[in-house]
Measured scan of single mutants.
Amino acid sequence: THFTSQQLQELEATFQRNHYPDMSTREEIAVWTNLTEARVRVWFKNRRAKWR
């Protein structure tokens, strides 16, 4: 999946605040970024792996 810079900005900003967002937070992010909750969940999983 290719993310727009706007989507990445929103995802990264949320990641800085919370590395493990809950389901409702992921659903909110999905609405803001026009992505599915599953895409958001996978992005956070991959981002945490990169962060370690």
Rank of each mutant, 00 (worst) to 15 (best):
R47D: 01
R48T: 03
F3K: 03
N46V: 15
F44D: 00
T4L: 05
R17W: 12
L35W: 06
V31T: 11
W32G: 10
M23N: 06
V31W: 08
F3C: 05
T36A: 06
R26M: 10
H2S: 14
S5Y: 13
H2F: 12
F44R: 00
A13K: 11
E12G: 01
R47C: 05
F15S: 01
R48K: 03
W51T: 06
A30M: 03
L11M: 05
H19W: 05
E10P: 02
L8S: 06
T1C: 12
V42E: 12
V42M: 13
R48L: 07
E10H: 15
E12I: 04
A30R: 02
R47G: 02
E37R: 02
H2R: 14
Y20L: 03
Y20C: 08
E37N: 04
T14D: 04
Q16L: 11
I29W: 02
S24T: 11
R52A: 11
T25F: 07
Q7W: 05
F3V: 06
N18K: 04
R47H: 02
T36C: 06
T36P: 07
S5H: 12
H19G: 03
D22A: 08
T1N: 13
D22P: 07
S24K: 14
Q9I: 11
F3Y: 12
M23S: 08
R41W: 06
Q7G: 02
Q7P: 01
V42P: 00
K45A: 10
V40G: 00
L8P: 00
T14G: 11
S5A: 12
R52E: 10
S5M: 13
Y20D: 03
Q9C: 10
K45Q: 09
R52K: 13
R17T: 10
E27R: 13
N34A: 07
R47A: 05
A38D: 10
E37M: 05
A13E: 11
L35Y: 01
N46F: 11
R41V: 04
N46I: 12
K50I: 14
Q9V: 11
R26D: 02
E12N: 06
F15C: 04
E27F: 14
A30F: 04
L35S: 13
F15N: 01
L35A: 07
S5V: 14
Q16T: 08
L8E: 09
K50G: 07
R39C: 09
A13L: 09
T33L: 15
W51E: 12
H19L: 03
L8A: 06
F15H: 01
W51Y: 09
I29N: 00
R26K: 04
K50F: 09
Q6L: 10
H19V: 04
R26S: 01
S24P: 11
N18Q: 06
I29V: 07
K50N: 08
H2K: 13
E27L: 15
E10G: 08
Q9F: 12
T1Y: 13
T33W: 07
A38M: 13
E28V: 09
R17F: 09
A13S: 11
T25L: 11
R39A: 15
H2V: 11
N18T: 08
T4W: 05
N46Q: 13
T33D: 01
E10T: 15
A38H: 14
E12S: 02
K45D: 06
W32I: 15
K50L: 13
W51V: 06
R17Q: 11
E10Y: 15
Y20N: 06
L35R: 03
L35V: 07
R41K: 08
P21Y: 02
S5P: 14
K50H: 07
L8M: 07
F44L: 02
L35Q: 07
N46P: 00
L8K: 07
R52S: 10
Q7Y: 04
R39S: 13
N18I: 10
R41E: 07
Q9M: 15
A49I: 11
F15Y: 06
R41S: 08
H19C: 08
V31C: 13
M23F: 14
V31H: 13
A38P: 10
S24F: 10
T33M: 14
W43R: 01
N34I: 05
K50R: 14
Q6F: 14
A38F: 13
T4G: 03
I29R: 00
V40D: 00
D22C: 04
F3P: 05
A38T: 10
S5R: 14
T1P: 12
K50S: 08
V31M: 12
D22T: 12
P21K: 01
N34H: 10
S24D: 09
E27C: 11
L35N: 05
T4Q: 03
V40A: 00
T14M: 15
H19A: 06
I29L: 12
Q16F: 07
Q6D: 11
R39K: 15
Q6E: 10
T4D: 05
A49P: 01
E10V: 15
A30D: 01
V42Y: 10
Q7N: 03
I29C: 04
E37F: 04
E28H: 09
A30E: 03
T1H: 12
T14F: 15
N18A: 04
S5G: 08
P21L: 02
K45W: 09
R39M: 14
H2Q: 10
A13C: 11
A49Q: 09
R17K: 13
N18D: 07
E28L: 14
S5T: 13
Q16A: 10
Q7T: 06
N18M: 08
H19P: 10
R26W: 05
P21A: 06
T14H: 15
K45Y: 10
I29K: 01
T33N: 07
R41T: 06
I29S: 00
M23D: 05
N18V: 07
T25I: 08
E12T: 02
R39D: 13
R39N: 11
Q16D: 06
Q6T: 10
V40N: 01
I29F: 03
Y20M: 05
N46E: 13
L11K: 01
W51F: 09
T4A: 03
Y20H: 06
N46T: 09
T1L: 12
T25C: 09
R41Y: 06
D22N: 09
V40I: 11
R41H: 08
V31S: 14
N46C: 12
A38N: 09
V42G: 08
Q7R: 03
Q9T: 11
R47E: 04
K50D: 09
D22K: 06
A49N: 08
E10R: 15
R41L: 07
K45P: 00
R52C: 08
K45H: 10
F3R: 02
T14E: 14
V40Y: 00
E37I: 05
E27H: 13
L35F: 03
L11D: 02
Q16Y: 08
N34L: 06
E28P: 00
F3W: 07
I29A: 01
E12L: 03
T4P: 02
K50M: 10
T25V: 09
R17I: 12
S24A: 14
D22I: 05
E27V: 13
D22V: 04
R52L: 15
F3M: 09
W32Q: 15
Q9K: 13
A38W: 12
S24G: 07
L11C: 04
A13D: 09
N46R: 15
R39Y: 09
T1S: 09
N18P: 00
K50T: 09
Q16P: 03
Q6I: 10
K45G: 04
Q6G: 08
Q6M: 10
F15W: 07
R26Y: 08
F15P: 01
H19M: 14
K45F: 08
W43I: 00
H19E: 03
A13Y: 10
W32H: 14
